[in-house]
Amino acid sequence: MGIRSLLAMLAATIALLAVLSGRETYSLFVPGLLQGAVLTVQITALGCVLALFAAIAAALGKMYGPAPVRWLANAYIEIFRGTSALVQLFWLFFVLPQFGILLEAFTVAVVGLGLNVGAYGAEVVRGAVASVPRGQWEASTALNMSQTQMLRRIILPQAIVAMIPPWGNLFIELLKSTALVSLITLTDLTFKAQQLNQTTMKTIPIFTLVLLIYLAMSLTLTIGMRLLEQRASRGLSRGRSA
């Protein structure tokens, strides 16, 4: 979808939310749901940061690390991509305490989801670094740069541009998978919805509002990433033509 259609859809979603929260049958649930939404946003934001770091570390470890680091990075990527996010959360939440490691539910949520998305992100980072033309590497070598300098100054700035669109998708995946944390006792948007649903049984208003709130958050994130992408590629084309 183009950015204009996305903006139109976001405007429509917010308008619908505003109209519905004016109605009595709906307005009852708005404060509670928004409270949950705040936690959802917090987990998403922290999870995204962790995912970025985990992905870069794993990708660099896999590409340039000595053999043990490479195996470790590979094991991390395969394990987190090969099992379900929910299984990972449950494992961190229920099994780790039996080994004496007790984490708060919030920490489990951020670590679990961040590492899960980070494993997918590692392949994105690797692909983006690999997509930088060979000549760039050769020229950096010819200029006698060390490998760190090469990565930091030449390769990564170009790779980052190629990474933005896939990372946008991954961030959306992370936002959506925060719904899972309701199953490990965190009072996020989904948890609030279920709680309100069990006490009032007003399924239609509650779940309609929840869907719209998630939609508004995802669309905002998508639009933000699109704008970032436009900005970044604008810089790149200027750099190339110069």
Binding site: A179, T203, F207, L211, L219
Partner: peptide, 26 residues
Amino acid sequence: ISVFVELIRSTPLLIQIFFIYFVGPS
């Protein structure tokens, strides 16, 4: 169809499961 696809892809599957299971009976 693109609005439908965007709608489905932008909201969590768990909520969609709840929606069909809990709201469907209404």
